[in-house]
Design a protein around this nucleic acid. Sequence first.
RNA 1: GGACAGAUGGCAGAGCGGUUGAAUGCACCGGUCUUGAAAACCGGCAUGGGUGCGAGCCCAUCCAGGGUUCGAAUCCCUGUCUGUCCGCCA
Length: 455
Amino acid sequence: MLHSVRNDDFIYVTFHVTKFGQFIRGSTMFDIKAIRDNPAEFDAAMKRRKLEAQSPKILELDEERRSVQTELQVIQAERNEKSKEIGTIKKSGGDAQGAMDAVSALKDKMATLEEKDKEIGEQLKTLLSSLPNIMKDDVPDGADEEDNVEIKKWGEPKNPNGANKAPEHYEIGEALGMMDFETAAKLSGSRFVLLSGPLARLERALAQFMLDTQTEKNGYIECSPPLLVNTDVMYGTGQLPKFQDDQFETTDGRWLVPTAEVVLTNIVREEVVEAETLPCRYTAFTPCFRKEAGSAGKDTRGMLRQHQFYKVEMVAVTKPEDSDAEHERMLKCAEGILEALEIPYRTVVLCSGDTGFGARKTYDIEAWMPGQNAYREISSCSTCGDFQARRMNARFKAKGDKNTQFVHTLNGSGLAVGRCLIAVMENYYDPTDGGVFVPEVLKPYMGGLEKIVKG
RNA sequence: GGACAGAUGGCAGAGCGGUUGAAUGCACCGGUCUUGAAAACCGGCAUGGGUGCGAGCCCAUCCAGGGUUCGAAUCCCUGUCUGUCCGCCA
């Protein structure tokens, strides 16, 4: 349920998350003026998202609301004027009863209009907050992941076509005695894993290496953020209200972050930052929590798809004109990790049917996984334009400039640690003894260990 | 968890029922002065929305929500956050 609590176009909304009585505040996701000026363009953008034309309903509500507001404002102006008169009369000791009665008489009408305005605002907000971002023109059309377009391939995949298929990561890990799904299931249920010994350390080494690279080499600021966030924040990056079912919610109305993107991006929420401080680049190594509600039966074996996994995330906040270049830069920062680890990968541009709700354009990096004989997603780098910024009311201002503008936000995995662990295990597997070589760049993080072997 | 005290423009900080959208200072912008700069002086400077070709006019906003009132930044209730003290605890 959505309740608008202001009667202006910059709708502040309280979004009742039922039992907790929590609120979400944020502006509309789209420039309603732009929709008003060019509804056809907006409808075309939604059509690419496989949605029917949205502008007729939006504009109908918008028009209705504005007419109610105009009517209301006339009465409010009258009230304000009369009340001032009463003040003057009373000051000079006169009798203001007549004027007071007149203002009282306006009250019913005002209450009715206010109620109506609120109701229409709710409807409009409900509608708008569930519409996806407008994609960039250069996003290829397509139905699903089959239509994503490969733009880069790096490295030589081992055993392509499965000539002698390598074991899958869970076979390797279980054989080593360092990857235990049964115990994890006992502790937590399905889609959890217990790593131990050098394999647990390898995961930590990967994270350390990624974090050091993103901070020291690529200039991201390391953050150690809260992992439990409020409803406003989840709304800001677009997880709510539409994807509530994918999220873990606490009993006191907070949410476990599904990705550090949520916290890092919201650092600038409700801020007006100075233009000179942009771009802001943040990175964090955090656990991520996801219900994986819609993926029953998918990737059930192994640790590819878990309710909890580690990820090093990159977030950038830029001026509008810089976001495209920043997107390319971020992609390179992610790809650089796989190159340093010498793991073959390919990069694809997601097609219109596969691009996420909040993204204007997304690159996926897929690492080669010999055990599956396939490239699998290991990073996703998206540019969101001002979509999240509008939801968060995150703006910037140039020095000397009177007006504020919405910032642009970008996010990318740099990389998903759990999946990267899988890639390392399968790519560095030694069939002669079932061990896993430690990649060169990780050795310093492994205390100089060369190879993980059973024992 | 208990007891107080707060929350006002980019920041600091007055106001505590009636032309207060809000004093003042800092910051910022324009100008005067100066060889240039600083200082000094003069002027400007909140946000969102509606309406108009436009100068403008109108509405809303002083943490959020609700209430009292002809009228609320100011009074009352609830929530959130911050500070201080006490208790508890990794």
